[in-house]
Nucleic acid binder design. Structure first.
Length: 566
RNA sequence: CGGGGCGUAGCUCAGUUUGGUAGAGCGCUUGCUUCGGGAGCAAGAGGUCGCAGGUUCGAAUCCUGUCGCCCCGACCA
């Protein structure tokens, strides 16, 4: 590609509304342009990278035995009513009517549609297993789109759906996809981790996320140092310590603690560590009433775990302060398990110590020397808290450390949730109707481009891995319009590399060197060849890898350049 | 959804408090000089000041409405 014929709209100044580095650089380098909130056009330069990621995904999905198809982005409401998600999805799903006043949505995902098609054409166990995928534009009306294409409303996604006769075969395909994803993320050049995940409102049993590690990531990951455990903190388990609780040694004593409402305040006021306090949260119970959740003073509730507890309402909802006042006769801030008027579930860690401090269920008062079993009932326990950095890994191997990550892929074993809802069945070898097991596997293709930039950039701009760079090599001729030697050398190198199948760009815009170098660094082309009279006098090109600190001189031949690309 | 902020040239922003002929830098066009890390000089082009209504002799500026965009929050015992 000759840059004189290619729209390279780079900017020196950082756009005002871009917060994260990838968004800033993609705008400055002209990869994307914004159309509206969470809506971006991919300009020719950006589309080259986006297409490369798509192609890697496509190649690995094909190699893994999945079959590409393409479904409509617009979907009729009936399918969603059938699965029961028309009412569940909420405002995130963009809905509209056609001219006949029929309801439609712009597909946020395609479980319903693929189930519909499998139902149309699949009758026999002999036709299973099958894995369909597509690379397609999705729309999710995010409550708050941000970070450019990283959390856009419209985005490019690879979504795959597999169908199986039994759970064992689903498990096999799940690991097949896990392997394919690992190859995809590796080829794209990302530093990533596979972590256990919460399956969210998609449902299903087992699920894992592929996270691209970056400090700006929206997700917090709990990874075991010195072990293999890794999970999104949303899903990271905690385990009882296994240490027996010390015997009660102090008498229960009510203490005046005027105005001390938070754990931190009480801890400081009474001079006890946060780890010696039990806090009580009041939430909506599954039966419509209220239920207390006891946590150690320094721990935080994991709402996702709470919502999964059979006695706690799902979706999770904190009790209103008025309702707490009515039930306890005191303000939120003085609640505790001793003399608690509602049932209590405790996190494991909240029952592992004796002589604790807690709210007295009386304004401006706390208890000290409180003990489970003596001053209040031994509560039911469960894993309800957020994992902490430094916790032992739940599998016993290693210690938890936190990382930030950008979710680039997510794989699920859905089981029969959708196949059942959509009344899908095939006949097995015995002629019996069987509901297939289903898996689904997504990759945020457009997000991945931004995530790689978050991970790979410097003060001058993007640093693309070779595999997804819009061009692998950029030729910068110095004084091309003045020097016939430079022009000839640049043209013949350009031709030779093109013929060798290398994606090469020739900066024939007639820019000054500084401007060419600044653009080269900003758009992040991994290999740069500078051709000038000085070098040619010694039969040399200057070669520089984008990531390298300095350039080197190489023989002025296409072979020498190709050698550098190997 | 709640809170805060911003809409003025392609981009980044002044100007609004205190109403009086629309500004700068970058970018763009032309010419000359320059030419190894975003050149210099000169001459230009480019804005119904988000939109609608109102107040006023006069509105980018004041008032009302509206649309768009951005940020923060949605863990509290």
């Amino acid at each position: 590609m000759r840059l004189s014929k290619f729209p390279l709209h780079t900017a020196k100044e950082t756009p005002a509304d871009a917060e994260v580095v990838s968004h800033q650089l993609m705008l400055r380098a002209g990869y994307i342009r914004k159309l509206g909130a969470g809506l971006y056009s991919w300009m020719p330069l950006g589309l080259r990278t986006l297409s490369k990621i798509s192609q890697i995904v496509r190649e690995e999905m094909n190699a893994a035995g999945a079959l590409e198809l393409l479904m409509p982005a617009v979907q009729p409401a009936e399918l969603w009513q059938e699965s029961g998600r028309w009412d569940v999805m909420g405002a995130e799903m963009l809905r509209f009517k056609d001219r006949h006043k029929n309801d439609f949505c712009y597909g946020p995902t395609h479980e319903e549609v693929i189930c519909h098609h499998v139902k149309q054409d699949f009758r026999s166990y002999k036709q299973l297993p099958i894995n369909f995928y597509q690379i397609q534009t999705k729309f999710r009306d995010e409550r708050r789109p941000r970070f450019g294409v990283m959390r856009a409303r419209e985005f490019l996604m690879k979504d795959a759906y597999s169908f199986h006769l039994d759970a064992a075969d689903l498990g096999r395909e799940y690991y097949n996809m896990r392997e394919a994803y690992t190859r995809i993320f590796t080829r794209v050049g990302a530093d990533f981790r596979v972590v256990k995940a919460d399956s969210g409102n998609i449902g299903g049993a087992l699920s894992e996320e592929f996270h691209i590690l970056a400090g700006s990531g929206e997700d917090l990951l709990a990874v075991a140092e010195g072990g293999t455990y890794a999970a999104n903190v949303e899903a990271a388990e905690t385990r009882p310590s296994g240490q027996p609780r010390a015997a009660a040694s102090a008498a229960l004593e009510k203490v005046s603690t005027p105005g001390q409402k938070t754990c931190e305040q009480v801890s400081k006021f009474m001079n006890v560590p946060l780890t010696g306090k039990v806090k009580l949260l009041v939430v909506k119970a599954a039966d419509g009433g209220l239920i207390g959740i006891a946590l150690r003073g320094d721990h935080e509730l994991n709402e996702i775990k709470a919502a999964k507890h059979p006695k706690i309402a799902s979706p999770f909802e904190m009790a209103k302060p008025e309702d707490v006042q009515k039930a306890f006769g005191c303000e939120v801030g003085y609640l505790g398990p001793v003399g608690c008027p509602i049932p209590v579930i405790a996190d494991h860690a909240a029952v592992e110590f004796a002589d604790f401090v807690c709210g007295a269920n009386d304004n401006d008062h706390h208890y000290k020397g409180a003990n489970w079993g003596r001053d209040c009932a031994e509560p039911e326990t469960a894993d309800l808290r957020q994992v902490c950095e430094g916790d032992p890994s739940p599998d016993g191997k290693g210690t938890i450390k936190f990382y930030r990550g950008i979710e680039g892929g997510h794989i699920f074993q859905l089981g029969q949730k959708y196949t059942k809802a959509m009344s899908l069945s095939v006949l097995d070898a015995q002629g019996q109707a069987v509901t297939p097991e289903m898996g689904c596997y997504g990759i945020g293709v457009s997000r991945m481009a931004a995530a790689v930039i978050e991970q790979s950039h410097d003060a001058n701009g993007i640093i693309w891995p070779d595999a997804i760079a819009p061009f692998r090599v950029l030729i910068c001729p110095i004084g091309m319009d003045k020097s016939a030697a430079v022009k000839d050398a640049a043209e013949s190198l350009y031709t030779a590399l093109t013929q060798a199948g290398i994606e090469v760009a020739l900066d024939d815009r007639g820019q000054r060197p500084g401007a060419m170098f600044a653009d080269a660094d900003l758009i992040g082309i991994p290999h740069r060849v500078v051709i000038g009279d000085k070098g040619l006098a010694n039969a040399q090109f200057e070669y520089k890898q984008r990531r390298a600190a300095s350039a080197e001189m190489i023989p002025a031949t296409a072979e020498a350049v190709l050698e550098k690309l190997r």
